[in-house]
């Protein structure tokens, strides 16, 4: 993996590294990727992929109905108590339209 690919991967990951940090980080990343490359050695021809183990059929889902709290304004305040920035019940985020 060259510097351009690493930079692209960092951007996809929404992460940034100082050049010094990247220099110390890169070898470990490389060794992990070298380790997982081992998987190329297994014959999987004709084997279906499995994204998750579905051990039971028909797990029920909740009805797709919005649950309105008894006091929506108070509940909103509780949920927004952890927000970095709010104003009048809204989340304040950086401007995306110039």
């Amino acid at each position: 993996m060259d510097k351009t690919q690493l930079d692209k991967l960092a951007m996809l990951s929404r992460l940034e590294f100082t050049p010094e940090k990247l220099a110390s980080f890169e070898p470990s990343l490389r060794s992990v990727l070298a380790f997982v490359e081992k998987i190329g050695g297994v014959d999987t021809a004709g084997i279906p992929p499995m994204a998750g183990v579905t051990t039971t059929a028909g797990t029920p889902e909740r009805a797709d109905v919005a649950v309105i709290p008894a006091d929506p304004v108070a509940r909103r305040a509780e949920l927004q108590a952890c927000a970095p920035k709010t104003e009048m019940g809204f989340y304040v985020v950086p401007k995306i339209v110039e």
Partner: peptide, 18 residues
């Protein structure tokens, strides 16, 4: 960094994420 957790302000939205 929008609804909860650490936010470090950047010049724009993408920079704030990063």
């Amino acid at each position: 960094g929008m609804r909860y957790g650490l936010r470090v302000e950047g010049k724009n939205l993408l920079e704030t994420y990063i």
